[in-house]
């Protein structure tokens, strides 16, 4: 158990944003956090790093290897932020400083947290750039963010987050601003790094497809509460909570429709294997990833149309 969030409550300006969230992140596993906007996904991520907006009040506990983060004095918390817990934000165009070279942005916190010298830090930065598959890491070190494409920038943002070998990585909608083809690359990278470095990843996303691709565990949030939590295979194939079902129904993807309406049990055998082969199947996954040809379902947009966009009504 790397990071334990128990009964986390956040109040901003008298309004309860989180009403008792429980989450557990484990090393080498990706924990997906789903839910519509305003359900408190991002706030949960920010609370871990103590980045909540001014005037917010917290209760409950967030424990990193047994250490309480919520009550940590700011100086101690600064050692955790960027050091032990790192974050990747949604938009790489705004999360990177436009006027500093990416080398500078990669080494600044490394030198501070790890106390590295200039040359050491540079060597490590170049190594990291290679790890996130930036072509020509040596030359890339001295370039500015605008010289890279969106997908590259997000890779660099991930490299910045990984620079101090964190134990926990919080990725807040890391692929939302990217094209699907680029998204595929970033997701593969995240999954690979998680398996390779034993990171505990909290993946905040509204995209259940993304969730299904990389997360081991899935939690669904609604109105500041986790309404359902469990292994990916179960939550996405046999959702227990009506809200999760409504979320899945609202997707335009036709593949889910027959499973939902006609034969709900047909998916069970596969989901069993999906459950068992979670954490260590990173390599097996990439082998079976040619999913494009399997997409046989045609546009059943009428049914998707009617079921979309109103998950609230069904949940009540």
């Amino acid at each position: 158990m790397t990071l334990d969030i128990t009964d986390l409550k956040v109040t901003i300006g008298g309004k309860e944003i989180l009403r008792g969230v429980d989450l557990t992140l484990t090393a080498g596993r990706v924990h997906g956090l789903a839910g519509e906007s305003g359900s408190g996904k991002t706030m949960t991520g920010l609370a871990v790093l103590g980045l909540l907006p001014h005037g917010s009040r917290t209760a409950g506990s967030i424990r990193l290897d047994g250490r309480e983060l919520l009550t940590l004095p700011p100086k101690e918390l600064n050692k955790v932020r960027g050091g032990e817990v790192a974050m990747v934000f949604q938009d790489p165009a705004t999360s990177l400083h436009p006027m500093l070279t990416i080398g500078r942005q990669l080494t600044e916190h490394m030198r501070h947290h790890l106390g590295l010298g200039r040359a050491e830090a540079k060597a490590r930065a170049v190594e990291l750039l290679g790890k996130v598959r930036i072509p020509g890491p040596e030359e890339a070190y001295g370039r500015f963010p605008h010289q890279f494409s969106g997908g590259m920038r997000q890779r660099i943002a991930i490299a910045v987050a990984l620079a101090c070998s964190p134990k926990v990585l919080i990725a807040d909608e890391p692929t939302t601003a990217l094209d699907v083809t680029v998204q595929a690359g970033v997701l593969r990278l995240l999954r690979g790094l998680c398996d390779e470095l034993g990171l505990a990843v909290l993946l905040v996303t509204h995209d259940l497809g993304v969730m299904s691709a990389v997360a081991d565990e899935v939690s669904v949030m609604k109105d500041g509460l986790v309404v359902e939590s469990g292994p990916r295979g179960r939550v996405l194939r046999e959702p227990a909570h009506p809200y999760t079902r409504a979320l899945l129904d609202s997707l335009p993807d036709a593949e889910l429709d027959p499973a939902e309406s006609g034969t709900p049990k047909s998916g069970t055998p596969e989901s069993g294997t999906a459950k068992s082969g979670t954490a260590k199947s990173g390599t097996a996954k990439s082998g079976t990833a040619r999913s494009g040809t399997a997409r046989s379902g045609t546009a059943r947009s009428e049914t998707a149309n009617s079921g979309a966009a109103e998950p609230d009504a069904e949940a009540r």
């Binding site: 299904s212 691709a213 593949e255 999913s291």
Partner: peptide, 10 residues
């Protein structure tokens, strides 16, 4: 990516 719960990377 498809939300089928199979964990298939796109």
């Amino acid at each position: 990516p498809k939300p089928d719960g199979m964990g298939v990377l796109p």
